[in-house]
């Protein structure tokens, strides 16, 4: 069974496709901290300097989803689903001009997922 840490809703993929048309290749980066933190940011690929401290959680419709390692340590027992909601976020995330905002729904990994993703 192919277990994943991240998933995306069909509605969110529609927005993702709109953004790909306009901006080309994209990445998600999980933000933390104040205000619009604790939300995924969508950025042009190459916009953000990434290195070994950024964990690749998975790929959503061809878009890599990254999170900083020390944040990941607290998140790794959960599964994330990227969704889209009406909203006026700030930050440099590319969907903001569309009047929508990517958000995350989380659930605990099942024991089997946890075994495969975190223990092997």
């Amino acid at each position: 069974m192919n277990h994943q840490r991240v998933a995306i809703t069909a509605k969110a993929i529609q927005v993702l496709n709109q953004l790909k048309e306009k901006h080309g290749d994209l990445i998600f980066h999980q933000s933390g901290g104040c205000c619009d933190g604790s939300s995924p940011m969508i950025l042009e690929k190459g916009e953000m300097y990434l290195d070994d401290s950024d964990v690749l959680l998975g790929q959503l419709d061809g878009v890599n989803y990254y999170m900083n390692q020390d944040q990941f340590d607290y998140w790794k027992h959960t599964h994330l689903t990227v969704d889209i909601t009406v909203g006026r976020g700030s930050s440099f995330s590319l969907e903001i001009p569309l009047g929508v905002r990517f958000i995350i729904h989380s659930r605990l990994l099942t024991p089997e997922e946890d075994e495969v993703l975190n223990k092997r």
């Binding site: 933390g32 901290g33 104040c34 205000c35 619009d36 933190g37 940011m41 900083n68 930050s91 440099f92």
Partner: peptide, 24 residues
């Protein structure tokens, strides 16, 4: 603001060799 934008702003500042202050 938040950390991802904070990191991006520091990157841009590095191109201009500008100082920054951050409250995240």
């Amino acid at each position: 603001g938040e950390t991802t934008t904070g990191q991006l702003i520091m990157q841009y500042a590095s191109k201009n060799l500008n100082p920054v202050t951050m409250e995240l």
